[in-house]
């Protein structure tokens, strides 16, 4: 099978959905002629025309706000927010508008829209280009939040997101855009939203993670494997709605849980998972839950980010603490 990078898989998903459904359109800053700052939409304006792929004025709230109206009147917009750190500019349009239109209108209107946005660290970007803000959207009923960690998932999840009748936030870890090439089927396929993937089975402890930290967690787990310790690794893939069953099933089996994410610690995805476990399977736990996350500061300057983010060293230490607790 041919191999694609994640950015190529994302581009292909959009291209195939645009071929299939003429109501699928793309709008955002620099997505047309330039093909997006990461080339996610490269060549799509040329192929589908300026009435399908729109370079918008530089205004995030305008992009999402008009996309809401486009979706309410029959289109299926894919809106790009150039970097996730810019999404604060359009919080009302996402959380107070897109998320609630179905509820507000008693089901008369829906907002079948995808908001794509690159995020996550280790790429030496300027301020507000690397922040992991996904937890903000978990707290807004009506939204779905999807975060792929590899090319295969990226294509299938994005196709599902485009076909969804509700707004989906699709956050893409920048550092994984071109970090590997993997087999990706040529034909369109869906990966269900809301389902986690157990990417490594094990019995000794569970590590739940998603997005940019998935490869380093897997690498750490493989290193432990060589020492005879079998870690189970869950790639959540969707953080809203979160796959409670997959987490519960794994923790019931291993009795130990670590959560790894780049986002700041307080009020994050890890906090939600820890609460789910305490509600659903507290007595399965043999040790306190460990979180390896960003610290509760603004996303740091470039010279600090490698130490601030979860890294193999911090994850390894976390696993050792998790396993040594008696």
């Amino acid at each position: 099978m041919r191999k694609l990078t994640m950015i190529e898989a994302i581009r292909e998903a959009m291209e195939q959905e645009m071929e299939k459904d003429q109501n699928v359109i793309i709008l955002g800053e620099d997505v047309g002629v330039n093909g997006g700052v990461f080339r996610a939409t490269d060549g799509l304006q040329k192929k589908f025309g300026e009435d399908r792929v729109f370079d918008t004025p530089l205004a995030e709230s305008g992009i999402i706000g008009t996309a809401v109206g486009l979706a309410m009147n029959g289109m299926r917009p894919i809106a790009e927010i150039q970097f996730l750190g810019f999404i604060y500019q359009t919080m009302d349009q996402i959380c107070a508008q897109a998320a609630r239109m179905r509820y507000r209108s008693g089901g008369r209107f829906t907002v079948p829209m995808v908001i794509r946005s690159p995020f996550s660290g280790n790429v030496r970007s300027p301020e507000l280009h690397s922040d992991s803000l996904e937890a903000l959207f978990m707290h807004s009923p009506g939204l779905k939040v999807v975060i792929p960690s590899n090319p295969y998932d990226a294509k299938g999840l994005l196709i599902s997101a485009i076909r969804e009748e509700d707004p989906v936030l699709f956050f893409e870890p920048m550092k994984l855009y071109r970090s590997s090439r993997e087999e990706v089927p040529e034909e369109p396929y869906e990966i269900p939203i809301g389902k986690a993937s157990v990417i490594k089975e094990g019995e000794d402890a569970t590590i739940a993670t998603y997005g940019g930290t998935v490869p380093m967690v897997l690498k750490t787990a493989q290193a432990f494997q060589e020492k005879g310790i079998n870690l189970e690794v869950i790639d959540l893939r969707t953080i809203s709605p979160i796959d409670t069953e997959a987490i519960k099933e794994s923790v019931d089996k291993t009795g130990r849980l670590m959560i790894v994410h780049e986002a700041v610690k307080t009020g994050g995805v890890g906090a939600e998972i820890a609460t789910i476990v305490s509600e659903e399977c507290l007595y399965s736990l043999a040790a306190p839950i460990v979180r390896v996350t960003g610290y509760d500061t603004p996303y740091p300057v470039q010279t600090v980010e490698d130490d601030w983010l979860p890294n193999v060293e911090r994850i390894t230490e976390g696993v050792e603490n998790l396993l040594s607790y008696q």
Partner: peptide
């Protein structure tokens, strides 16, 4: 209560000031 009738080309009532302005632009654009 804020469900516009099926046959009316009418958006639901907006409470956030100016929140509906870009929606209307998107609607006209569609």
């Amino acid at each position: 209560g804020n469900r516009p009738p099926e046959d009316a080309k009418l958006f639901p009532i907006q409470v956030i000031i100016a929140g509906q302005v870009p929606h209307a632009v998107g609607c006209a654009w569609a």
